[in-house]
Simulated scan of single mutants.
Amino acid sequence: MIRVLLVDDQALLRMGFRLVLEAEDDIEVVGEAGDGATAVDQVRALAPDVVLMDVRMPGVNGIEATGRIVAEQPATRILILTTFDLDEYAFAALRAGASGFLLKDARPPELIAAIRSVSSGDAVVSPRITRRMLELFAPQMPASGVVPEAADAVDPRLAELTPRELEVLLSIAHGSSNAEIAELLYLSEATVKTHVGRILAKLGVRDRVQAVVLAFETGLVGRGQA
């Protein structure tokens, strides 16, 4: 069972999420919280697998709560849900350690699939959020038209990556799945999965979302764009 904690300051929304999730055989809602501080306490007490976290709440907001939970309970994954399709919320939540970001208008099947993905250790960022992040950050970054060689990477955090791993990381940052990366780079999905694992290990990040954040922060995104 995937144990889920619901965090939102609107009780009706929590009820709606509970009804959707408890209809699934492999998901159990173990608790609820109406603010970030209570969410942190509930995670300590209940150790859920996944937290559905609202962003705007009274007192401790969802981004601050996410940072506290990730620091204290790294095994718990955070899936941010919000009505605010704004770049600063998306990027701040991901930098705080969230493993996914979805808007509240996502359909129930999308929400359920996202919970299963983050529970299994994968990451979820909606294509819309990825596009907005690209629109916001790419113009601020130098564009050479090619992926740099590892030795030429500006940020030392990228120095250990091979040229192929840089290509894979860039594709991840563009929101591509393993299957899409395999098709783009003429690799097998198994090979792509191996590359992804090595990238995460070399960068010292725990999932694909954190790799995406690092790709933006280091300026890698933008260089390989047409």
Rank of each mutant, 00 (worst) to 15 (best):
R56V: 11
V213I: 05
G59T: 02
A71Q: 12
D207K: 01
L169G: 02
Y186G: 05
A92C: 01
T83W: 10
G224V: 11
D25Y: 03
L13D: 06
I27L: 02
D105S: 12
L21S: 06
R208W: 03
V30G: 07
R14I: 08
V125C: 09
A113V: 07
A123W: 13
L136K: 14
D9M: 01
V147A: 09
E22K: 00
V51A: 04
P142T: 11
Y186A: 15
R128T: 12
L136M: 11
Q42I: 04
T76H: 05
G224C: 07
A37I: 10
M53T: 06
F216I: 14
D155H: 14
A182F: 01
I199L: 01
P108V: 01
E110D: 11
T191V: 08
L220A: 06
R116K: 08
I112W: 10
R56F: 09
D49R: 10
E217H: 01
T83A: 15
P142A: 12
A37D: 06
G62E: 04
L52E: 05
E180L: 04
D25I: 03
R56C: 09
L185G: 07
E217F: 05
E88C: 00
P108E: 09
V29P: 00
Q42E: 15
Q42W: 02
M1Y: 11
L203E: 05
R223K: 14
L81T: 01
N61S: 04
R18M: 03
F216G: 00
E88N: 04
A65R: 00
V51F: 06
R107I: 14
G31D: 06
D25L: 13
S117E: 15
F101P: 09
A11F: 07
I69S: 07
V51M: 06
S126H: 09
G219R: 07
I80D: 04
A45Y: 13
L187F: 10
A159C: 03
T76R: 05
L12F: 09
V70H: 12
T191E: 11
A96C: 07
L161P: 00
D49F: 04
V196A: 03
P156E: 12
V70G: 11
F91R: 03
P142Y: 10
A93C: 03
A23W: 04
P139A: 05
E183A: 14
S176K: 14
V154K: 13
R77M: 07
T191G: 00
A92F: 05
N178L: 08
I199R: 04
D207H: 15
L111F: 07
A201N: 12
F137V: 11
A226F: 10
S126E: 13
A150N: 09
L13C: 03
T194I: 05
D8V: 08
A190W: 06
A45K: 14
G16D: 01
L81D: 07
P139G: 09
D152N: 13
D9H: 05
G145L: 05
D41F: 11
S119H: 10
E149K: 14
A153H: 00
D207V: 02
A211P: 05
T218E: 01
F17S: 03
G222N: 09
A71G: 00
P108Y: 10
E167G: 00
L12Y: 09
V20L: 12
A211S: 11
V60D: 02
Q10S: 08
Q210A: 13
